[in-house]
Design a protein around this nucleic acid. Structure first.
Lengths: 186, 186
DNA sequence: GAAGTATAGTTCCATTTGGAACTATTTGTC
DNA sequence: GACAAATAGTTCCAAATGGAACTATACTTC
């Protein structure tokens, strides 16, 4: 494992006990320990890289689990999730929210319609729109799945104190709220 | 845009000026403003949803740009990025770091080899391993691309004060450092 | 040092993906 | 109120994806 990493930007405190030196961890000059899984970011786009890294690691193993246990694709789950949170949405709304292309969403919606997880109803005021809602079956399915996510989040955040979790929440909220300012740029 | 959202968990302060009511924003009871793009998370996996939301919105438009301008896939860019940060890695290392399956990485590496962006060298001590490094061309390519990411990150973080950016950095570092504790669970 | 197990990397192939063109409806303009 | 432009959603198809089987090398154990 030949790494000449520069961890100058990483001000972490040494995490918990079981981080002893395996093949996946290493100590830098300052004595902090990091998994090889994460490479020290030298110079560029540091926070966004970490955001992506965390998001990938969080979601990564959940996607095969969704497929295996409930035969749901990532987009299908996104549709389920969005509808549970928002109540009623059009396919277009779901595209906006998730950033997935509309043909993927269209496909996912149709699959869920066939499985009676969502139902649709033509918008009376606009014949192009289909209003989507969850069926009772869909709500039950959501209820069955979501503990997996909650538990995983709980474990992920376990390294933070209650105050730190609150601070994180606050910062993420600010970033989310300002998305309109930057999401469409480039 | 029929949303009956509950934004109880969102303690954001109203962001900047141009967030006036378009089709994409709405005001909740407390007077805070949020893009429709983000649905209020009612009850479950709130922070992880926001992490994913931000990561998607950050990376989303960059991937087509990488394809169009430099004809690089997401995985190919990941390889480039990892090698630039770490110097020398095997394909396996890159799998560990990025979480991508090894056949995808293998393919990406071969494409980059053909384009003389990376070079490989058999590991003398282990005939199965190929040590990958960036060529000069690869380093130049990186240098050409990375400002796109840096600028986008700068814009994304613009809503945070210097102290808040530092706090975010610190929290993300803690989460990243503890990845080994939770990433493999389920 | 032979046999069995583990690991790095590749190939195969069925499935998923998403850009682009298309249909249908609505909105804007004169 | 007709014609152009915009929008919601679908279909088509070429390309990307990733699981699983495979090859080759290395490690383990007796």
């Amino acid at each position: 494992m030949m790494l000449e990493r520069k961890l100058t930007l990483l001000d972490v405190t040494p995490p918990s006990a079981q981080m002893s030196s395996t093949d996946f961890s290493e100590r830098d000059a300052a004595g902090t320990s990091l998994p090889l899984r994460f490479i020290g970011t030298l110079d560029a786009a540091v926070s966004s890289y970490k955001l992506n890294y965390l998001a990938n690691n969080f979601l990564g193993p959940l996607i095969p689990a969704l497929k295996k246990r409930w035969n749901l694709s990532r987009t299908e789950f996104s549709v389920l999730y969005c509808l549970r949170q928002a109540g009623r949405l059009t396919a277009k709304d779901i595209c906006e929210i998730t950033g997935r292309p509309k043909n993927s969403v269209s496909r996912a919606v149709h699959t869920l319609l066939k499985r009676s997880i969502v139902s649709q109803q033509l918008d009376a005021s606009d014949g192009r729109r289909m209003i989507l809602t969850l069926t009772t079956k869909g709500k039950h399915l959501y209820k069955e799945i979501i503990p997996l996510f909650e538990e995983r989040e709980r474990v992920m955040l376990a390294c933070l104190s209650a105050e730190e979790q609150e601070a994180l929440e606050h910062l993420l909220n600010k970033l989310v709220a300002s998305t309109v300012d930057w999401a469409e740029v480039y």
